[in-house]
């Protein structure tokens, strides 16, 4: 496959401007960083402009902002309970960040921040460590009873405990790979089918064009769904850390 037209070319990172190094650390402003900044700016603008009137009876845009708020706070309340209130800003930021990165990634010519395993793994590991630390701080050593399944016969415990531990430590992996793989697969699929449009020319190209339109709709759904899944799994992990089972 020619590298220039590879469906993976869209995931390439190149620094905008020169490379920047601070204390031996490469902090070049890349296209990935640009789209992160755009996502943050987009979220802030969206929420600020949506609530600029602070109307008692919300308009469409303000309803959307309030809907986002209600959605995440409902998710947190349903899955964690009232103890989760403290973590609401974090969970809300996480949801909005992933949602906007996913959606901005679908813009033509855009770069999808969440299609990089480093980014998703960083987010997932952050969630993982945060949740573990919360659990240990809240329950002390008692937290490790989480790995002992309740009601299991004692002779099964040597088998069950390693499985529980493994499934606990595999969480950040599945969390990050899920988001990453969804984004990559979606964009590769769009690019490949988009390539067919040109390959088949003006007569037969309409078929993949229709297909790509449908897939694009699916990708919009996936973009929202993955943000939702990431958030709800974070909430479930928080629940486990706070309530132990």
């Amino acid at each position: 496959m020619a590298e220039a037209h590879s469906p993976l070319a869209q995931f390439e990172i190149h620094p905008l401007g020169g490379p920047i190094h601070i204390g031996g650390l490469d902090v070049s402003f890349t296209n990935s960083a640009l789209w992160m900044v755009l996502a943050v700016a987009g979220i802030t603008a969206f929420m600020l402009l949506g609530t600029r009137k602070q109307a008692i009876v919300p308009g469409r845009w303000q309803s959307l902002c309030e809907g986002m708020y209600d959605f995440v706070s409902g998710l947190l309340k349903e899955n964690v309970g009232n103890e989760g209130r403290k973590y609401f800003p974090f969970v809300f930021s996480l949801f909005m960040f992933i949602l906007f990165c996913n959606l901005f990634g679908l813009l033509p010519g855009a770069f999808t921040v969440t299609s990089h395993i480093v980014v998703t793994a960083a987010l997932a590991l952050f969630v993982f460590f945060m949740v573990t630390i919360i659990g240990v701080v809240r329950h002390g050593l008692h937290f490790f009873s989480y790995f002992v399944p309740q009601g299991a016969p004692v002779w099964l415990l040597p088998l069950m405990i390693p499985i529980e531990v493994l499934s606990y430590f595999i969480r950040p992996l599945s969390l990050s790979v899920r988001l990453f793989a969804n984004m990559v697969a979606g964009h590769v699929m769009l690019t490949v089918i988009g390539g067919f449009v040109f390959a088949l020319g003006i007569w037969a190209g309409w078929v993949p064009l229709a297909f790509v339109t449908v897939i694009f709709g699916l990708e919009l759904l996936i973009a929202c769904l993955q943000a939702y899944v990431f958030t709800i799994l974070t909430c479930i992990y928080l629940h486990d850390a706070i309530h132990l089972h």
């Binding site: 990172i13 650390l25 902090v27 943050v40 480093v118 980014v119 960083a122």
Partner: peptide, 14 residues
């Protein structure tokens, strides 16, 4: 190559 800048900028922006 670009792990470090991504992580740094992810930290800053998040």
């Amino acid at each position: 190559t670009y792990f470090a800048p991504q992580l740094v900028w992810l930290g800053i922006t998040f």
